[in-house]
Design a protein around this nucleic acid. Structure first.
Lengths: 212, 212
DNA sequence: CCTATTTTGACAGCTACTCTCATTTCATGG
DNA sequence: CCATGAAATGAGAGTAGCTGTCAAAATAGG
């Protein structure tokens, strides 16, 4: 074969680093996720079995479990959390943590809305309907809580493992998680960013009694 | 077994109303729970199967599932929640809700400590170790949150279903749940009542920054 | 004691999930 | 270009939680 590109010796530097293996892995991963979301939209979560997912993704059931430890993880796992942590660490240290949280959460909301709006919605929907998914979600909240704790501990001069920091961060994260649920239960009518601001306000200032 | 009243001919009027059927049901229920806790102490949670539980409780596996929908429920389900809700409703309406919560939670802690201290500990322990149990616990928190929401909505003159109330109650309940976890992770060294007060303080006043 | 209702046990079945092992696919150095 | 080693995959068997059905046993009421 007359190869047009003699530049075989110097591979392009912008898409390299990833061998065929890595690329296939990414492909398989997204294939499984896409298949899952498609099937869920067609039949619902419970009616969708791993076998069906495997069939549509054209892999074996074994492979599905090799990529995702549980069925819930196929739906929930993403890379956002890591990104958000980076963002938090990037905020100026002297910024009040409430502002930091507001910034990164707004960014997260925008990210979800721009890149995969449909997925964001399905996820929130599943969180309302399917108990196991909600449970798994709360579990990951717990992890998020610990990440947030580091930032808050720094800024308030407390120990990360102190009861106070743990209680506070957990309450914040759980409060924020309630937003998605509220959003989904009200048929996605509200603007997520607005809900976020209202929730952060409550978490920062408490519930002001309307009369007294 | 019945170390109570020997009055065979005239059944006591304080424990009546319950036919043989109801009494057997209660017996079976507690038998299953006791068997479960015993087996868990011996072998751990995961190693304990429904079949083993059924054997020790001297019932069939079917019956176990008839009494408890999931394995986690055997460990977690109790009647406290209902009692706590009663207590909350019994508090004076003009009392600040933080005080109401403090009262009923203290009562709950005392109840757990007095009546079944071992169980309280095992439960907290399982909550730390077994993800599925923790998940199920959070789920019941969500229910508790909704109960609390009614009380808070009343006292703050807001709608029970408003975002504000939901976010706030969820954050409070989640924060309180973190107490158990902290307690168990620190080998039950602290006094639960103290932890409760500290947590409630944080939830009411926020995290006071130590320097500013 | 007899009948109606409830409770139970035995059984079959589904599915998420684990583990093992042989086969295939990719990477690499000669 | 090929041979060798490593990694990914597929196939299969097995476990356990959970659901549903149906007949047998226990209980309530007359």
């Amino acid at each position: 074969m007359a190869s047009m590109t003699p530049a075989r010796t110097s591979p392009p530097t912008d898409v390299p680093q990833l061998g065929l293996r890595e690329r296939k892995k990414i492909k398989t991963r997204t294939a499984i996720r896409d298949a899952t979301y498609a099937l869920i939209e067609e039949q619902g979560y419970d009616a969708t079995t791993i076998e069906q997912i495997a069939d549509r993704a054209e892999v074996s059931p074994s492979t599905v479990f090799r990529y995702f430890p549980t069925k819930e993880d196929i739906v929930l796992t993403d890379e956002h959390d890591a990104l958000i942590l980076e963002e938090l660490k990037a905020r100026p240290k002297d910024e009040p943590w409430t502002e930091s949280v507001r910034h990164i959460m707004h960014k997260a909301v925008r990210l979800g809305h721009d890149r995969e709006p449909e997925i964001t919605r399905i996820r929130a929907h599943l969180m309302v309907q399917v108990p196991t998914v909600r449970a798994r979600m709360m579990e990951s909240m717990s992890v998020a809580s610990h990440m947030l704790a580091e930032g808050i501990a720094e800024r308030t001069g407390r120990d990360v493992d102190s009861l106070e920091v743990r209680v506070y961060t957990m309450s914040v994260v759980a409060g924020l998680a309630e937003i998605s649920r509220y959003w989904a239960e009200n048929d996605f009518q509200d603007d997520l960013a607005d809900l976020l601001d209202r929730a952060l306000d409550v978490l920062a200032n408490g519930l002001t009694t309307k009369n007294s």
